[in-house]
């Protein structure tokens, strides 16, 4: 029940000496954005970023959930079994599995919200972000979009003047394809797709390399045409900023379209792990085959 290592390692200076594990050439190939200049934030143009950049490393993670309140008998169940995987910079890792298989638990563990676990979680991303499934509860209805963005900017660790913060907020809106008019509006009349764009903008507000964003069924509640747009947006932002995504989805076809590698989870275990192309072409596990068949 102990944490055997830190939750967060602030290894975001981008020096390759700090990145321990060896990675395949695949990692280098997957992050073409790794060498792109990075304006405003963190490291500036002159800091080299290692092409082998790791964003997240999970090793032999076992997580437990204790049910029962103060007055009933407590039961400790194991919800994650020996989970191990890595995410590199500029990589989109898909996570599929049916409900109740522990995907959300894994997300919470990565975000540092889980107490009862053993194993290693090394998060090189200083402040991982999350995009939630329900666009309608993700934005504070009592405040304007601009206010919400500025709140995120206020606590990003970057110093801003009032004007520069506003400018930055506008820049964020531009990046996600929203008009600047939205700055002064409350979220009332925004559509699902627009709301998710705002959430993505908020996630970018505190960006620091490497940056992990967990998308928990982020497009599942959207109309299919809007879904496509948001997937495009995520990909383009990933390219531009070298983001890493953990893309949780029940829709294998979406995973095929967007992700580079994918984890298949069943009952708290990773039953199969592969690149997307490989998995779809040659699924090894029975469960994977079932999922693929059902998604046809």
């Amino acid at each position: 029940m102990n944490h055997t290592s830190d939750n967060y390692a602030n290894i975001n200076t981008g020096n390759s000496t700090d990145h321990s594990a060896a990675h395949s050439a695949e990692a280098a190939a997957e992050s073409p954005a790794a060498t792109r200049a990075f304006p405003f934030f963190g490291h500036g143009d002159d800091t080299p970023v290692s092409p082998e950049g790791l964003t997240l490393k999970v090793e032999h993670l076992n997580a437990y959930y204790t049910s029962g309140g103060p007055f009933s008998k407590k039961r400790r169940q194991q919800v994650l079994h020996d989970v191990s995987f890595e995410i590199h910079e500029g990589e989109i890792l898909g996570l599929v599995g049916e409900s109740g298989t522990g995907k959300t638990t894994l997300a919470r563990a990565i975000l540092g919200l889980l107490q009862d676990y053993d194993g290693t979680i090394i998060n090189y991303s200083k402040r991982p972000q999350m995009i939630f499934q329900d666009p309608y509860s993700s934005l504070n209805p009592a405040h304007t979009i601009g206010w919400s963005l500025e709140e995120a900017l206020r606590y990003s660790g970057q110093e801003y003047t009032k004007e520069s913060r506003r400018e930055r907020a506008f820049w964020l809106l531009d990046k996600v394809g929203l008009l600047r008019d939205h700055y002064d509006r409350k979220p009332d009349f925004l559509s699902g797709g627009q709301r998710q764009r705002v959430c993505i903008a908020q996630a970018l507000a505190q960006i620091q390399r490497p940056q992990l964003i967990i998308a928990d069924e982020a497009v599942s509640a959207l109309d299919v045409t809007i879904q496509a747009q948001i997937l495009h947006l995520l990909y383009e932002l990933k390219e531009e900023f070298g983001l890493s995504f953990l893309f949780i989805s029940h829709d294998l076809n979406v995973v095929y379209q967007l992700c580079d590698r994918v984890l298949v989870m069943k009952k708290g275990e990773i039953v199969e792990q592969n690149t997307v192309d490989e998995l779809f072409a040659n699924p090894k596990e029975e469960y994977t085959k079932q999922l693929l068949k059902a998604a046809e």
């Binding site: 939630f132 993700s138 504070n140 505190q206």
Partner: peptide, 22 residues
């Protein structure tokens, strides 16, 4: 438990601010 509160926590916004302003 609303998502926007979870969001605020993920952004490192302190609890007092979330309570009173969010």
């Amino acid at each position: 438990d609303m998502n926007y509160v979870k969001n605020a926590k993920l952004k490192g916004i302190p609890d007092w601010r979330i309570m009173f302003l969010h």
